[in-house]
Design a protein around this nucleic acid. Structure first.
Length: 576
RNA sequence: CGGUCUGUAGCUCAGCUGGCAGAGCACGUGACUCUUAAUCAUGGGGUCGAGGGUUCGAUUCCCUCCAGACCGACCA
């Protein structure tokens, strides 16, 4: 294959690769490389007085090089951080043969290559902790040049911030932006912190189906797929609620799952088609208990991550120290609008919407109308953690009726930074009531609400056997991670956020011989390819030989190739 | 889906009223055995997002498309 489509730097790296092989160095060796230390360990613990770290072995990626003739400095980055290494010709090559330094290190290694080094640690005259290298092993040759990011006194130069590169080539983002690696480390730490708490209480981490015949447990549009053997449609789960409750029926005291859910809806900085929710269900509890438990979870996560409950998010300071404000949805609306909507019917609610300029349509029932008023008038005020409690029945079909407030349910949502972070209920365990709620949903669906829930008869049967009083809670892990790591977009807390696929251009090229067969003089093949005619098929598509001849002659002139001019007739012959 | 902005070398970005395509880093060659955004000398590298139009001539002006960012609408 010709290299004409590769950039100059890529071609140089590929030729370095070949040169390494010619020198008997495998650029992609199979053997384990034994290391005994990480960069950060050395930086944290090396003290010249103790004379420690005198026989170290570490491996990582070359991130910069400063060659000064027969001695060089470079920066090696491993999973823990970066450390400077010092490579001196006569230490690396004590004998007559200086190839490893003069040829391999200086000429055939590049920024981005992965190497292993052995040596001892010392401090340079400038005071920088450095590994003095006595042995160097090539572990992986990088043939794609890395973006160059430099840093001096904490100031970053030429940082790559282009989201296109950062999200589509996350591996590059992770290499050159250490703070991005840190965000994802924290993401995992949040999960660990929550697992620790749940496991210490004896709750069981479980896995439930991702492929579901009935997409239940939430109101959302699902992704649909097809199972060939059963010849039935299957849905990617929009929630795992109904399965976890079946497990409570089965006799577990508490179950939880970190669940990848899928919703076929819009994408923006708070929404990705696949996202993670932690759902937890605990028997014999109610939503009041769950509010306290949620406070405990969130404040523990903050403490484990930051050592304090107060964190900075963008230009806001958010305090996760319990207790959080608890206010009913209707009171919150009253507080923000001055209007008491309790007891109002559908028609009256529409008038309230009109009065505040809130859009509504005929498919919206009472619940959705109240929801619309709430999100337009209240959500933006909920910066500090706040429990909004007691939601209308229509939009909460899986929630127990309120023990004392008619028309409402025992449900809360936790809002932080004006966004919903968690959603929880005293779970509806009355099978007959549940069946009626599902039928109400069916009616909504017939009215045109394409988010109304499906009926799951097996779930009803499970409830008929009896589910104890239970409280359940779902917590958006992506949004929680955004908050805890101060990231503005969901794409910044997902390794591989959903992106529009890029149409891949197949880099197939025709061989020289094929061009020669058509009568193309050898010296004109390269110019042809440069002009985009990389295959015979593309060349054959040309209709005007004259234009092609012109283009080629122009290319010849522009690049001062010194080739003799082509006539349209000669070019025409190639095309036939 | 609507509005505003962006796309130029491997990377970060200049490029005026249309007239030979620019810088820094990176890369090649040479010098340099404690440098650190190493330095010095020197050289190469471009389908100016894609396609069409206007023009003697388009990176520049116009149209269409593609991709992205921000702000709205919908949703967790």
């Amino acid at each position: 294959m010709s290299n004409s489509l590769l950039s100059e730097q890529e071609q140089i790296r590929r030729s370095s690769l070949e040169e390494l092989r010619k020198l008997g160095i495998n650029p992609y060796p199979a053997a384990e490389y034994k290391t005994n230390v990480f960069a950060q360990e050395i930086l944290d613990n090396y003290t010249p007085d103790k004379n420690n770290f005198q026989d170290v072995s570490l491996a990582g990626r070359i991130m910069s090089r400063r060659i000064m003739g027969n001695a060089s400095f470079a920066e090696l980055m491993d999973s823990s951080g970066r450390i400077q290494i010092y490579v001196r010709r006569d230490d690396l090559c004590p004998g007559e043969d200086k190839t490893l330094y003069n040829t391999v290190f200086k000429h055939h290694l590049d920024i981005g290559d992965i190497i292993g080094v052995k040596g001892h640690v010392f401090k340079t005259q400038m005071g920088e902790t450095t590994v003095h290298v006595s042995e160097l092993t090539v572990l992986c040759k990088s043939i794609h040049p890395l973006p160059i990011v430099k840093e001096k006194d904490g100031i970053i130069f030429d940082a790559v911030t282009d989201p296109e590169m950062r999200y589509r080539q996350r591996y590059v983002d992770l290499i050159i932006n250490p703070h991005v690696r840190e965000v994802f480390r924290k993401r995992t730490q949040i999960y660990q912190s929550m697992r620790e708490l749940f496991n210490s209480r004896g709750y069981l981490e479980v896995e439930t189906p991702v492929l579901q015949p009935i997409p239940g447990g939430a109101a959302a549009r699902p992704f649909i797929t097809h199972h060939n053997t059963l010849d039935i449609p299957l849905y990617l789960r929009i929630a795992n609620e109904l399965y976890l409750k079946r497990l409570i029926v089965g006799g577990y005291e508490g179950v939880y799952e970190f669940s990848k859910d899928f919703r076929n809806e819009g994408m923006d900085r708070n929404h990705n088609p696949e996202f993670t929710v932690m759902e937890i269900y605990i028997a014999y509890k109610d939503y009041n208990w769950m509010m306290s438990f949620t406070e405990e979870i969130i404040s523990k996560v903050a403490m484990d991550l930051h050592g304090k409950t107060e964190i900075v998010y963008g230009d806001k300071v958010i305090n996760f120290k319990p207790p959080y404000k608890r206010i009913s949805m209707l009171d919150s609306i009253k507080e923000n609008t001055g209007v008491d909507i309790s007891g109002k019917n559908e028609e009256e609610l529409r008038k309230v919407c009109d009065r505040f300029g809130i859009e509504h349509d005929p498919t919206m029932g009472k619940g959705k109308l109240i929801n619309a008023i709430f999100s337009m008038k209240c959500e933006h005020t909920l910066v500090q953690p706040t429990f909004i409690i007691d939601y209308p029945t229509e939009t909460s079909p899986l929630t127990k009726m309120h023990r004392s407030k008619p028309g409402l349910t025992e449900r809360f949502e936790l809002f932080i930074n004006c966004k919903e972070i968690a959603n929880a209920y005293s779970e509806l365990n009355d099978p007959i009531d549940q069946m009626e709620r599902f039928q109400d949903q069916l009616r909504l669906s017939e009215k045109g609400d394409n988010e109304a829930m499906f009926i799951d008869l097996d779930f009803i049967r499970a409830l008929e056997y009896g589910m104890p009083t239970t409280s359940g809670m779902g917590l958006g892990m992506d949004r929680l991670t955004m908050l805890m790591t101060d990231q503005p977009s969901i794409q910044d807390v997902l390794f591989f956020p959903q992106m529009k696929p890029i149409s891949q251009k197949l880099k197939v090229e025709s061989q020289k011989e094929e061009y020669i067969k058509l009568g193309v003089p050898e010296e004109w093949i390269e110019p042809l390819k440069k002009l985009g005619y990389t295959t015979i098929v593309k060349l054959k598509e040309v209709e005007k030989a004259g234009k092609l001849a012109n283009d080629l002659n122009g290319y010849n002139k522009k690049n001062k190739l010194g080739l003799s001019g082509l006539s349209p007739e000669a070019v025409d012959k190639w095309l036939k």
